[in-house]
Design a protein around this nucleic acid. Structure first.
Lengths: 138, 138
DNA sequence: CTTGAAAGGATCTAAGG
DNA sequence: CCTTAGATCCTTTCAAG
């Protein structure tokens, strides 16, 4: 993991489909050299996968909410969240809160349904996302 | 956006590098037909990008925290978070909380530094991530 | 690590149903 | 909107340096 690997990861993070040739031109190496480095990064699980980001509103899931739970049965809450189709991410956390679920859903009605279903597992505090921002890792 | 597009997105979500040929075999179409559909999904911004997931701990950022803010100056807090290298995601939300930052940092010391720097912009409640889970969209 | 070349795939283009 | 077929580009693998 040297600075060239960092630069390769930086390029791939922003565009997973970038060709070895193109990455090579950024890091001033040959394409086979870059391919070998990428292969090693995959084997070392530095690269965990290549994913496609899909627009949630185009999937008719325009409302995103971060729901904070105080729960005494996080195992059950986790099981519920892992299997619920509206949940896109969830976190077991230590702090004032014990569990956080990120939900992307169709409408306030479906959000209400989710909260009602989740209530038995803990006390939710619902925060609707107004805007979101992602920073690059590298 | 028919059921075939959904199936294509489902495949690409899990593996952005899947070839048109391989997707084609899943949806019982020819490779060029799939390529054309993917191109349209890109043009319609249903597909927002192709990204590589990088292991944070391999980048020496083993601690992840979700920091909940009560703030009266979200604009400044957002500006701070957008430009801070430890922040990976942040959300302006409506609810009990006004702003949420997802931070990936090296150690408790660097986390402490972040909190100290963020304090002027609001009242933080720090929740360290013990475990995380992602669901598939499709 | 490099270059260069060869083999195998993938994508792109075009013609046609 | 689809298919098939041909051309082109990219990747991968190997050699030799």
């Amino acid at each position: 993991m040297d600075h060239i690997d960092y630069e390769i990861l930086k390029q791939l993070e922003q565009n997973a489909k970038m060709s070895m040739k193109e990455i090579a031109s950024h890091v001033h190496l040959s394409a086979p050299a870059v391919a070998e480095r990428v292969k090693k990064l995959e084997e070392q699980h530095v690269i965990e996968g290549y994913h496609t980001k899909v627009n949630l509103s185009k999937l008719d899931r325009s409302i995103t909410a971060l729901i904070l739970f105080k729960s005494t049965d996080c195992k059950s809450l986790a099981q519920f969240c892992h299997s619920h189709p509206d949940v896109i991410e969830c976190y077991r956390v230590a702090g004032e809160i014990s569990y956080i679920a990120k939900v992307a859903t169709k409408s306030v009605e479906t959000l209400e349904n989710f909260i009602d279903q989740a209530m038995p597992f803990g006390t939710p505090s619902t925060n609707i996302v107004l805007s979101a921002h992602e920073n690059n890792l590298l």
